[in-house]
Amino acid sequence: MAGLSTPKQKLSALVITYNEIGYIEKCIDSISFADEIIVVDSFSTDGTYEYLLDHPKVKVIQNPFENFTAQKSYTLKQATNDWILFLDADEVVTEKLQEEITATINDPNAHEAYWFYRKFMFKNEPLNFSGWQTDKNHRLFRKSKARFTDRKIVHETLVVDGESGVLTEKLTHFCYKNYEDYKGKMLKYGQLKAKEDFYKEKHFNYLLMAVKPFWKFFNHYILRLGILDGKKGWTICYLNALGVLERFRELKRLEKKNELAYYLVMP
């Protein structure tokens, strides 16, 4: 019938957490425009769960953490709306990005998914280079048209049945709270990447362990202009390279553990 308007699209905002106090508060405030906010927490010990439990707009569920892909796939199943905004706990949606998201999902010609470019923050100062200037991620998509591939367990990848667009406004990423926090993240990512390599039957190599971390640092600090970020750039590039080194250390540990288990069960 003439005169009938298209119903407003509803949006589910999803986040996974583990010990995110200091990050999660700003994240939740920035997605309060969503019709539904669901957070899956992997048994935080720093008050994150209690904060979310007391938040009137948040539905929080606790679920054991296996890996990032499994946790995000589980979280996606909890959403009741088709349009999904999936953020990390240290990401913040600006007011202009909120407006762009709302306009996008209500556009009859919208794509099935959208990439977001990110503005990286070192504490409260922007990190303009250091390899992050071209970083982009799928953050907005239709649940009915996308899923997380099980081929990766860290830096999870969205598989989209259809076309993807790119939003104009950037997502703000508070990647660096303090040295130990970021170092812990990089070591954890390295360990998970090693598990991914191990499952794919990739083997530990001393030459690669020597070359890859150095290349990571050189690439991000020199070629990707981390040097222009000053001390911030040095710190980020060093810790990113440390994560690559940990990937090889962990792969070596996994192979030794596997060999020991093999000999123990030999007749």
Rank of each mutant, 00 (worst) to 15 (best):
N178R: 06
F148P: 05
L260A: 15
Y199W: 13
W115N: 08
I61N: 01
F218K: 10
V93Q: 13
L53K: 14
S44V: 11
Y221L: 08
S5H: 10
Y179K: 11
L187W: 02
K231C: 14
I38H: 05
W215R: 12
S164R: 09
F43M: 07
S130L: 00
N240C: 03
G243R: 00
R249W: 10
Y206V: 10
T104V: 03
E180W: 06
L239P: 09
K177V: 09
I21H: 00
N240A: 01
K152E: 13
D229V: 07
M1Y: 05
F204L: 12
M1I: 05
R139V: 02
F33P: 06
K143F: 09
I153Q: 13
R118Y: 05
G190F: 01
G233E: 10
K8T: 07
T17L: 01
L167R: 01
M209G: 00
Q191I: 07
L228A: 13
D197Q: 06
A194Y: 05
R151S: 15
K143M: 09
H55K: 04
G184D: 12
N124S: 08
N205T: 05
Y74N: 07
K183S: 07
V211K: 09
E169P: 07
Y238W: 14
G22D: 03
L127R: 09
Y49A: 10
L53W: 01
K212A: 13
E50S: 14
F116Y: 07
E201C: 14
L254W: 15
F174N: 09
N106A: 10
L167T: 00
D161P: 00
T235H: 13
L225W: 11
K185I: 06
Q9L: 02
P126F: 00
N128G: 02
I38E: 06
F86K: 03
Y263C: 12
I38F: 03
K188Q: 13
D197W: 12
T149R: 05
I84H: 03
C175H: 09
L208A: 04
I31N: 05
G162V: 09
N240V: 01
N178K: 11
K123M: 14
L225G: 03
G243E: 04
N258W: 15
D54V: 05
K136L: 08
K183C: 04
I21Q: 07
C175A: 10
T69M: 12
Y262C: 12
E112Y: 00
L14F: 01
V211Y: 11
I31T: 00
D197R: 02
E50K: 15
G184P: 03
L127F: 14
F174Q: 04
L223S: 02
L97H: 04
I236C: 13
K170H: 15
H138S: 06
E95R: 04
G233F: 05
P213M: 02
